[in-house]
Lab assay of single mutants.
Amino acid sequence: MSYSVTLTGPGPWGFRLQGGKDFNMPLTISRITPGSKAAQSQLSQGDLVVAIDGVNTDTMTHLEAQNKIKSASYNLSLTLQKS
């Protein structure tokens, strides 16, 4: 079951990613910084990142996902799936 979260910026957003197409692993939330915008939302460590700002992550490399997140200036919309 997927869910959506919109973090209001600017960054830093307070989470780290792992995985990506180049690692043959789905993009997942690997760490959440305590007290951060991510920590105050529904994000959980281990959640799968399905889309970033409406763009499906199935074919994204780790770097492409990082760049997509960094390019979000004020709002960052994520679609996630609980692990």
Rank of each mutant, 00 (worst) to 15 (best):
R31C: 08
D22G: 06
P10R: 11
S77G: 08
T61K: 06
L48T: 14
A65S: 05
A51V: 07
I69G: 01
Y3I: 08
N67F: 09
T61S: 13
R31H: 15
A38T: 03
Q81G: 09
L48I: 14
L17E: 01
I29Q: 01
P34N: 10
D47M: 05
P12V: 04
V55L: 12
I29G: 00
P26H: 04
S30W: 08
L48S: 09
S77Y: 09
Q45I: 15
S77Q: 15
S41M: 10
S4R: 10
V55R: 09
L78V: 05
K68P: 00
T57V: 10
R16E: 15
S36T: 14
V55N: 11
S2M: 15
K68D: 02
Q40P: 03
P10N: 11
S36N: 03
D47F: 02
G54F: 03
P26C: 03
E64C: 08
M60Y: 07
M1K: 08
M25Q: 13
S4A: 05
T33S: 12
E64N: 06
I69N: 00
I29S: 00
P10T: 13
T57P: 03
N75K: 15
T61E: 05
A72E: 14
I69T: 05
F23C: 14
A39I: 04
G19W: 02
A38R: 01
D22F: 04
T59K: 11
T59E: 10
T28H: 10
A65F: 03
L78R: 00
G35P: 02
T79M: 12
Q42Y: 05
G19D: 02
E64Q: 08
K82S: 15
Q81F: 08
P34R: 10
L43S: 02
M60Q: 03
N75S: 13
D53S: 10
A72K: 14
V5K: 02
R16M: 13
R16G: 12
T61G: 06
L80G: 04
I29A: 02
V49P: 00
D53T: 03
Y74M: 15
S36W: 02
T33D: 11
S77P: 08
Y74L: 14
S41Y: 09
G14C: 01
Q45R: 10
K37F: 06
A65G: 04
K82E: 13
P12E: 10
A65D: 00
K37D: 06
V5P: 01
S44C: 14
Y74D: 15
F15I: 09
S77E: 13
Q18P: 00
